[in-house]
């Protein structure tokens, strides 16, 4: 087990290194001259030859004269030390810029994942048990609709009904500007602003997950062990919730891990739609503003999350199902 994990970990590092090379290559292909941008303000202050010298110095300092591979090594060294560069727009180190949005994104995603699980697991199990009934068929149709409609359309509809027509929630934003009050009022204010995005996110994820749980449960319910359990005279409740559910867990865990990974980037559209200060919105803004240090850091972060998610999924199979435990 340990050996396997170690092997996978080394592989992860390897892939990460390759990805960073590819990305660095991509970014260095973008036309643009950071040195020119840096000294542009001095153009009218300095004499032409002084300006040229300042420009040369800036190029030297930023390492733009080096060949790409040397620049990559420099950048990688900085990256390993935790220095992701400086954001051009925010004029701050990238890790400072990313901190708050990351917290927001993680919060709203964890909330919506938990809310989604609380709805989909019971619903999926119920549909699997009541397979073929009218209720089940209705849910099946609804789930297809649910996962076919992109989240921004849900968001538009929800804004139209709940924010514009009924006026229950604000249309966008994280909190009322210049809001002052007690902590409790602050929380209430946040809750009011976040209610709509969280609803949209949860509903958007219901469709696919419910179908998945249902399919896994149906497979599990058709196993021989279930027939045996029923023949033993166990209560149906025990059969479903204990025997079948455990067997259905393996495919569900895969999905859960994927879902968990999407905690970090799943709310991109919602954040933009509702103007929430999250990681996705930061990524979009940085892309529009060509603030590539931030983009690069966010992207590598995504890759780390994705790779470790894969590892986590493989390891968790062993935990959930002893039959697939890796013993290499």
């Amino acid at each position: 087990m340990l050996k396997y994990t170690l092997k996978r970990f080394i592989y992860m590092v390897f892939v990460f290194a390759i990805m960073s090379v590819i990305l660095f290559g991509l970014y260095s292909m973008i036309p643009g001259d950071p040195a020119r941008a840096e000294v542009e303000g001095l153009r009218n202050v300095l004499k032409p030859d002084e300006y040229q010298r300042a420009y040369e110095l800036a190029r030297e300092r930023l390492g733009l004269n080096d060949p790409t591979h040397i620049r990559y090594i420099k950048w990688a060294k900085g990256f390993l030390r935790g220095d992701f560069g400086t954001s051009i727009i925010h004029k701050q180190p990238v890790d400072e810029v990313i901190k708050t949005p990351l917290r927001v994104t993680i919060f709203i995603n964890i909330f919506s994942v938990i809310a989604g699980l609380l709805i989909t697991i019971p619903l999926g199990i119920y549909c699997a048990v009541k397979k073929g009934t009218r209720f089940d068929r209705t849910v099946q149709v609804l789930t297809i609709v649910g996962y076919s409609i992109p989240s921004f359309i849900f968001a538009l509809l929800f804004i139209y009904f709940f924010a514009v027509k009924l006026g229950w929630f604000p249309v966008s934003g994280m909190k009322t500007p210049n809001f002052t009050g007690t902590t409790w009022e602050m929380i209430k204010d946040y809750a009011k602003h976040l209610a709509l995005p969280l609803m949209v996110m949860t509903i958007g994820s219901l469709g696919g997950m419910t179908r998945y749980v249902r399919a896994a449960m149906i497979d599990a319910l058709s196993m021989d062990c279930i027939r045996t359990a029923r023949a033993k005279g166990l209560k149906e409740r025990v059969v479903v919730l204990s025997h079948a559910w455990r067997n259905a867990l393996l495919p569900i865990v895969t999905l859960l891990i994927n879902w968990f990974m999407s905690i970090f980037y799943g709310s991109l559209i919602i954040e933009r739609m509702f103007n929430l200060n999250g990681l996705g919105k930061l990524l979009i803004d940085s892309l529009f503003n060509q603030d590539y240090n931030v983009v690069m850091a966010i992207q590598l972060f995504y890759i780390v999350i994705a790779l470790s998610g894969n590892l986590l999924a493989d390891l968790s199979y062993g935990i959930v199902d002893p039959r697939v435990r890796v013993n290499k």
């Binding site: 973008i30 992207q299 995504y302 890759i303």
Partner: peptide, 26 residues
């Protein structure tokens, strides 16, 4: 299979966004 794993583990939407904005600029 390793290549495929890497591609499939990339977050789709952010990655497509980044590619389209970097390459699409010109």
């Amino acid at each position: 299979q390793r290549i495929s794993e890497v591609v499939s583990s990339l977050p789709f939407l952010p990655f497509a966004m980044i590619l389209s904005s970097i390459i699409g600029n010109s």
